[in-house]
Structure formats: structure tokens, C-alpha cells
């Protein structure tokens, strides 16, 4: 249950030791794209010693390791898996690479879908048991498709919808692609709203200054919270199941959704 997944570069001590101050629900410590080939070992050692020394209740910590085609994939897991963290973000995920990773760890897996083929076969990945979430990597995807990234993000409407639907079907979290313009917070908000409308549950972030906007958009609204409270209050007096509220039928799934929403609101200190 996270709204925001903030990427931080794994070889940067200044970022690591401040990872808990940015209000992100989850942190993804990156060993992949932000780390150059000749410093992969440095970053791995740094993250190892950092996580050996410091424990976090919040935020949840994920590691983006290197993909299975690289020699670093096994090293990353072998060195780091014994540490206390929530799970892995697996780049260029395929069904086969997720299965390979799941054989090496019991930790949860976020599949990073960023190639055209992975999006064609996304449901097979999402349906895997250890996959708790998928993350859409739109920059690599659009590059592979040789199409432009636009401000409106019209070009990824279909893949967002596709992943939202498949994730909903398999009760898996759908994390939207990051917004890349560091300074344009207004457009970031539009981008978040667009993703939320299409069914994203959370958003990945590549700059700490984006966290608040993302958290706000992906939090339950005050109206939703008030409504959920009313539903739960009325449910207490109607032990038998379905009842009527504002002319609408309220049954068990709706009551459960209200409970979840209140739990979320509590977690995010919105009550």
C-alpha cells in the first residue's frame, strides 16, 4: 500500500542517508541506470553497508537491481538478499526473468515493464505469485517504439489502461511511469491525475521534490473519506449485509472497499 515510489541513486551516500525524509511511502534504491558500469561494485557495497547499519520501518525499501542479461544480476542478489528490505524492482522484466529471480529470493518483486514485448505479455507476468506490483517504464518503451514522449502522454494511454485492467484483475498494484521534468510541478499533477483516471494506484518518482504532489493525487480525497465513514457507520447497524445509502445499494465489496480506504487514510495521516 504505497502511493509514491521514489528512485534514489545507489552510489550516492548523501541520498541514501536522507532517504527517510522525503515523505515517500516507498524508496527504490537504484543499482541500475543511475550507476555506471565501472561503479556497480561500489554501489552494491555502499548499499550493503548502508542497509546493514540503518533499519527503516517507513518508508518501505526496494532495490532496483541490474537485469538478468548483465553479470551484475546474480552479484546484486547474492550480496544483498540477506539484508532487511521489502523487495526488488526487476528491470526489463519478462516472465522468465521474474521466475529466475523468484527462485533466488522470497522477497516481493516489482516487475518493471519497459519493452514492447513485456507489455504484450504483461498479464503472464502480473499473474505470477511473487509479483506484488508492476511499474511502467514509459521512457524505454517509447524509445523502443520509436515514438515521441509528449507532454499529454497520449502515447501511453493504451499501455496504462492495459496494465490497470490486468493489475485490477490480479489484485496487483500498478505503479505509473515517472514524470521526468524536475521543475514543472503543475504538469506533474496533470500527469498523475491522468494516470489515476486510467487506473494507476501509485506513481514512481525520480526527483524527491515530486513526492508531495504524487502523494496528494494518490491519496483518498476528503469526500471519499467522508463517504467511506458513512458507509461503515451504517454497516454497523445493518449486520445482515446489503443496505441502501443515498439510493444506492451497499453490499460487502463496497463495505470492504470503504474499510480499505479508511485504513489507507489512517496510514497517510489524513484522518
Amino acid at each position: 500500500m504505497s502511493r509514491s515510489f521514489l528512485f534514489l541513486p545507489g552510489n550516492n551516500p548523501g541520498s541514501l542517508q536522507n532517504l527517510d525524509i522525503f515523505n515517500a511511502d516507498s524508496i527504490i534504491i537504484d543499482l541500475e541506470d543511475s550507476v555506471t558500469f565501472d561503479t556497480k561494485d561500489e554501489a552494491r557495497d555502499l548499499v550493503y553497508h548502508f542497509l546493514s547499519k540503518f533499519m527503516f520501518k517507513t518508508p518501505s525499501i526496494y532495490l532496483r537491481i541490474n537485469d538478468i542479461s548483465t553479470p551484475f544480476f546474480n552479484d546484486d542478489i547474492d550480496v544483498l538478499d540477506s539484508l532487511e528490505f521489502k523487495g526488488y524492482v526487476l528491470p526489463k522484466a519478462t516472465k522468465e526473468s521474474v521466475i529466475s529471480l523468484s527462485k533466488k529470493t522470497d522477497k516481493s518483486i516489482i516487475a518493471l515493464l519497459e519493452t514492447p514485448m513485456s507489455l504484450v505479455k504483461s498479464e503472464a507476468i502480473i499473474s505470477l505469485k511473487q509479483v506484488d506490483a508492476v511499474l511502467l517504464g514509459a521512457e524505454d518503451l517509447t524509445t523502443a517504439m520509436k515514438i515521441e514522449s509528449t507532454v499529454s502522454r497520449q502515447e501511453i494511454t493504451y499501455v496504462r489502461s492495459k496494465l490497470a485492467l490486468e493489475c485490477a484483475a490480479h489484485e496487483t498494484l500498478f505503479i505509473d511511469t515517472p514524470y521526468t521534468d524536475k521543475d514543472d510541478l503543475a504538469q506533474l499533477k496533470n500527469d498523475c491525475l491522468q494516470a489515476k483516471i486510467l487506473g494507476a494506484n501509485a506513481k514512481s518518482i525520480i526527483h524527491p521534490n515530486h513526492v508531495d504532489v504524487v502523494n496528494t493525487v494518490f491519496s483518498p480525497t476528503t469526500h471519499q473519506i467522508a463517504n467511506a465513514k458513512r458507509i461503515l457507520k451504517k454497516a454497523e447497524t445493518h449486520q445482515k449485509g446489503a443496505f441502501n445509502l443515498d439510493g444506492k445499494m451497499i453490499d460487502k465489496p463496497i463495505i470492504n472497499r470503504a474499510k480499505n480506504l479508511i485504513a489507507q487514510a489512517k496510514k497517510y495521516q489524513l484522518l
Partner: peptide
Amino acid sequence: TTNPIGVKIAK
């Protein structure tokens, strides 16, 4: 400042 720590302090 756009430094995330500075931004946090300002907030």
C-alpha cells in the same frame, strides 16, 4: 534552493 533537503525544510 531546489535541493530536496532544503525544499523539505522550507515546506
